[in-house]
Design a protein around this nucleic acid. Structure first.
Lengths: 338, 338
DNA sequence: ATTATACTCGTAAACGTTTACGTTGTCAAG
DNA sequence: CTTGACAACGTAAACGTTTACGAGTATAAT
């Protein structure tokens, strides 16, 4: 039903090869013929069959992005923005984006294997790296092109982009200490996630630099959601000797901590200081607005997508391991210890 | 490099057709041979080349989902959840999901045309329907399979699933009126979006049922983001005679309105009542928690995906136009007029 | 005039599948 | 022993491209 190269060729009484060449704008076709072909193709409504092209070219012109999710809901605003960045950048370069969501685990790995083995995509984007990340280990072993958002503790080199969570937390802590805080609690993301380790390390490093002791009881490792932050915050703030400041491993949890504080009648920013990490759009709009470490997530999406495209096109090796510094954004949710 | 049917066939000294048949589990191959083939394929690490399959079968086994976004950021938690629902359901049925993001406009339509013409996907999911929706008009004209989330004001029938925003708003308004509210403001989403019209219609219908006048000055049509809600809320609440309740067209805007109210020193739920629409996960966690109309977004994603799959497989025509009722969730952000 | 060079184009072989059709062989019924 | 049916398998043609190679023609150089 759809019009093919053959149809156009027949109409013009030329060979299918000529039509192909004319359309692909490769040399070897007389300018006059090229114009005739272009006109005919346009008029007949010719559109290439991409599957045929892909089979022949042995590339899919498609990037893969498998979003790790816990439970059915993944409202994490973080991913939507990352997706937008990746998607728009991919589109810019005429690449399709294949998206799947899967909870971490064996099914997830099986999906990676299928995608790789069946050559559904040319390259993959791996996000939220984990300790001994099986996905990365697999991709390295298969020598499959990919770029990760986040570093890893595995042997072997691979291209990644990461935000320096350790440096970020050190800066945030220094700021809080300068505000007079001495009992600073930390709500960590699950420690099997690489970023959680770096941020925790930054927290500890800052403590020792400030000459403060590391108090286990001030660190709790929760999940990733607002609900987790809420529960941790509630627990911290109901203690006999509560912390004067609480840092959460991400903004969503920080917002949860804020909820808990407010529910207990505390004035956030005065009675207790609260800070997060990410700077999702709600951080600015929360009441009070949230002090946080900004990661330019949209741009990160663009960037890792770009890195992957370079890798695929063999252009400019460039720097393949990038470390960005998050930006401390001080807002109303933190203040001098009162 | 990768193993093909030919390789397996050679190894067993059978024809490539036999291998294909054995693997596809179609009749016409001796049980013994089938086992030999299966074993060899497994051992050799054979994986079908999906592009070849797709070319030959003339289907892509891929669904398309083009996310409409405004500006670079689309933090709308709404879409991430919808995406998860769609993605998981598609995966369940062995379908790939092709995702793009594009701002509404001519480029967006061009993308639809390309996707359709080049047969990149078997079917499309259209969300956030608009007045005189050009996407839908095009797909109907091309007779391309699709399912919409949201109705339309176009001629012609098409499969859709929608949440009854009008009924929802009527219920919410009835509740607020019962709480003694008489001056109820409404922050609408852009009126070129179908859902915004239905919700506004519900608002007006409820007013007239309650014998209340429709006061233009109490309705403002903003955007979709928390920022838009913030600005609208600020404007309403700084008036000489402010409304006692404000309804926003979605939760994100409602949270913005709440911020504005709190910034002005108002106690939300007592001095002013605020309600939204969607029930995103932050609604429950906001402080105070947000009264809203719940749409089961994840399930909606699954459902429209399912409807599309049925359509593609020609199975069970079923009911192809579904209207769900949103559920009113009363929380702390609304209360008796004080 | 001859040869070389460049350009234009067609032929045909790939890419890796699926599947209609034909061939061969086996076995039971006549 | 012949015939027919049926099962198991192979051959080959598709699906719609891209591209190496070669053939043919025109132009320039000798």
């Amino acid at each position: 039903m759809p019009v093919t190269l053959q149809d156009v060729a027949d109409r013009l009484s030329v060979s299918i090869a000529t039509v192909s060449r004319a359309l692909a704008d490769v040399p070897g076709v007389a300018p006059a013929t090229r114009l005739r072909v272009l006109a005919a193709a346009e008029e007949m409504g010719y559109h290439p069959n991409v599957m045929a092209q892909r089979l022949q070219k042995r590339r899919t012109d498609t990037l893969g992005f498998i979003i790790p999710t816990f439970g059915p809901r993944f409202s994490d605003p973080y991913f939507s923005e990352l997706l937008a960045g990746i998607g728009n950048e991919a589109a810019e370069h005429e690449y399709d984006l294949l998206v799947s969501t899967r909870a971490p685990g064996t099914e997830e790995l099986a999906l990676y294997e299928r995608v790789v083995k069946e050559r559904r995509v040319d390259g993959l984007l791996v996000v939220r790296t984990r300790r001994q990340d099986a996905r990365i280990a697999y991709l390295i072993e298969q020598q499959f092109p990919f770029v990760a958002f986040g570093r890893s503790d595995l042997e072997g080199d691979f291209p990644y982009l990461d935000v320096d969570g350790q440096a970020g937390l050190e800066e945030l802590m220094a700021y809080l200490v300068a505000q007079g805080h001495r009992r600073i609690a930390y709500v960590s993301a699950p420690l099997n996630l690489m970023f959680a380790n770096y941020r925790l390390a930054g927290y500890r490093e800052a403590l020792s630099r400030a000459g403060l002791p590391y108090d286990e009881s001030l660190v709790v490792t929760g999940g990733l959601t607002d609900m987790d932050g809420y529960e941790a915050g509630r627990e911290f703030l109901q203690r006999a000797n509560p912390p004067t400041a609480i840092i959460a491993g991400n903004d969503l949890m920080a917002l949860g901590v804020m909820s808990a504080a407010q529910e207990l009648g505390l004035r956030v920013g005065r009675d207790v200081s609260i800070a997060g990490f990410d700077d999702i759009s709600l951080a600015e709009l929360a009441h009070p607005s949230l002090t946080t470490l900004r990661q330019p997530i949209y741009q990160i999406g663009q960037r890792i997508c770009d890195m992957l495209l370079c890798l695929l096109n063999g252009t400019a090796p460039e720097v393949s391991q990038v470390l960005l510094k998050p930006e401390l954004i001080v807002r109303q949710s933190t203040g001098r210890v009162g």
